[in-house]
């Protein structure tokens, strides 16, 4: 009966035009080893003959390649050796520490944040990919800064004098950054501290923290994080699930929301801007935060107009032009001043 099955029948079957008995024979045919390959081959040919949409595979490939690139770089050989150096040659650390101590003197040393902490900054319009000593990856958006202890960050054998006195891995963030936290064998905590007094406690996960003057926001892509407010110890910790978006308002309260696209919060990593009924006023704020521009909008009505969608823009000019095109308005840029008019 299985001899019945050929490409013509399969095509009719995919189109839902076969009798129940013919369907049964296809089911039996599928049970024979190797036939599923044929089945998918025919399905593929049928789909090609009945396409429902056209897509841009090149864009999808580029985006996926970029996604892969950002995780592959974690284990690039150069970084590996430097990490191994810290772990393997303890002697080297002692020698380095001894010479540093000789030069600076202990008093100076304890006061010197510059030496105890490593700071990574981005300028306007710049994004940066940083590898922390423990293997975690931080993508830093424009006009942002992270600071973390230079010594003993995430290492298991800590040297008491040189390491930061706090337990676990602590990173201080001003601005906006996306974290891929590496889970360590000793379950060491990873904490992101923001200037507004919000602490994100992590055990190996991916999330985006937005911490600027106007707003503090955390979006979780995968894993689990607990939010605490160290300045308000009586508040219970808030546990976030993937897809949750939590903002800290001006009164210091946490507001909770669900987002179906948590990855949009970090679309800037691919130089993309994702807007969800975002007003021109908010976009102006983004231009200010990320590119240091001062934006004037003529009229309240114009400031309240919104944009939705995801758009690529490599720099401030592209973003301004894009926004003006979408809203069909005029703009004028004079150095760091931008004006939008109807």
């Amino acid at each position: 009966m299985e001899e019945l099955v050929n490409k013509t029948l399969a095509f009719d079957y995919f189109a839902g035009k076969v009798s129940p008995l013919q369907k049964k024979s296809i089911e039996r045919w599928l049970a024979q080893p190797g036939n599923q390959d044929t089945y998918y081959q025919w399905l593929h040919e049928w789909e090609l003959a009945n396409l429902q949409l056209t897509t841009n595979w090149q864009n999808a490939f580029d985006a996926t390649q970029e996604r892969i690139g950002s995780t592959v770089r974690v284990s690039s050989p150069v970084e590996d050796t430097s990490v191994q150096w810290w772990h393997s040659s303890r002697l080297g650390i002692w020698l380095a520490a001894a010479s540093v101590l000789l030069i600076l003197g202990i008093g100076n040393w304890l006061a010197g944040d510059v030496i105890r902490y490593k700071t990574i900054e981005t300028g306007f319009g710049e994004t940066k990919h940083c590898l922390l000593p423990d293997g975690s990856v931080v993508e830093l958006n424009a006009n942002s800064r992270i600071r973390f202890p230079r010594f003993g960050f995430g290492s298991e054998s800590r040297i008491p004098l040189l390491s930061a006195e706090t337990a676990g891995r602590q990173v201080e963030l001003t601005g906006e950054a996306d974290f891929s936290v590496r889970h360590l064998p000793n379950h060491q905590r990873f904490v992101v501290l923001t200037p507004k007094g919000l602490a994100v406690n992590v055990l190996g996960t991916q999330f985006t923290v937005f911490s600027r003057e106007r707003r503090t926001q955390v979006v979780l892509r995968s894993g689990k994080v607990a939010l605490t407010l160290p300045k308000q110890p009586d508040q219970p910790a808030m546990i976030m699930k993937p897809g949750d978006l939590v903002t800290l308002d001006a009164q210091g309260k946490l507001a909770f929301k669900q987002t179906s696209h948590p990855e949009n919060a970090s679309s800037w990593k691919q130089h993309r801007f994702t807007f969800e009924t975002t007003s021109l006023r908010e976009i102006a704020q983004t231009l200010h935060d990320n590119y240091g521009l001062t934006v004037h909008i003529e009229g309240e009505e114009l400031a309240n107009r919104t944009i939705s969608g995801a758009f690529p823009a490599q720099d401030a000019n592209e973003l301004i032009k894009l926004v003006a095109d979408l809203l069909q308005i005029n703009y004028h840029r004079d150095n760091n001043n931008v004006t939008f008019t109807n």
């Binding site: 593929h44 789909e47 090609l48 009945n50 396409l51 429902q52 949409l53 056209t54 897509t55 595979w57 090149q58 999808a60 490939f61 996926t64």
Partner: peptide, 10 residues
């Protein structure tokens, strides 16, 4: 991607 992305999306 070139070969399969579009039909798979479809």
């Amino acid at each position: 991607f070139r070969l399969y992305y579009n039909p798979l999306c479809s």
